[in-house]
Write a protein that binds this DNA or RNA. Structure first.
Lengths: 117, 117
DNA sequence: CAGGATCCATAACGATACTG
DNA sequence: CAGTATCGTTATGGATCCTG
């Protein structure tokens, strides 16, 4: 998911795009950041209940390197860091939203309890 | 990507959807099947130049278990197997297309040689 | 032609403890 | 509060050879 992969050429635009938003948490992080506009590290951690600090940090860094999110540090005590979507990241939202709607329909069909994002 | 994962509840619809189309080749397979309507095993293998037979079979089976594609076997010699999208799989195409367009724009920005799907 | 089987490498992810 | 560091597990993908 990180640097390495992007070094070898993507086979095509679909391949390229999936590499950038693949991974277990990227979709959800982007979606949350869209819904709430700006979120602190701790808020994201609470929102994504199953994530560990390591994975959260790692995923946030990858998204940042990919210019899909922005990181703003407030140098104060206690520290405060805010994350938000970049323009490029925001362009992905319609896609994620449609995918989410599709997911909702499928989950109903399969009788999963519908869990809202 | 296979059964195991889908056993534990997805956190939400975004999580659910990403699980179903994640993986290195799923997006591209769905996209190709959409563009060409129906494809044989060997055609897919040629289209996805970097895939091994094992991965192709494995990915196709997962997509089939997920009811995103259909598999039609012709019992003749030499054997012939055709793959095509299901209704549910076809519903994903607009989103893959959207994502593909986004990928195209990004690749231009980064000055990757644009490789068409 | 369309795969199955086997073995292997690495990448992705996770638990836990600690820190500026 | 917002992370690091270290270590371990599992999932994913790959090479190679074989077959109805």
């Amino acid at each position: 998911m990180a640097k390495k992969k992007r070094v070898d050429e993507p086979a095509c635009a679909v391949d390229y795009a999936f590499r950038r938003i693949g991974g277990k948490y990227k979709g959800r992080i982007l979606w949350y950041l869209n819904a709430r506009a700006v979120m602190r590290y701790g808020e994201l951690r609470k929102a994504i209940k199953d994530i560990t600090p390591k994975m959260l940090t790692q995923t946030l860094r990858e998204l940042e390197d990919d210019k899909l999110i922005q990181r703003k540090v407030y140098h104060e005590v206690p520290p405060k860091v805010e994350y938000s979507l970049t323009e490029t990241g925001a362009e992905l939202i319609p896609f994620i939203d449609h995918l989410r709607q599709w997911g909702d329909r499928q989950m109903e069909k399969e009788a999963w309890p519908g869990i809202s994002c």
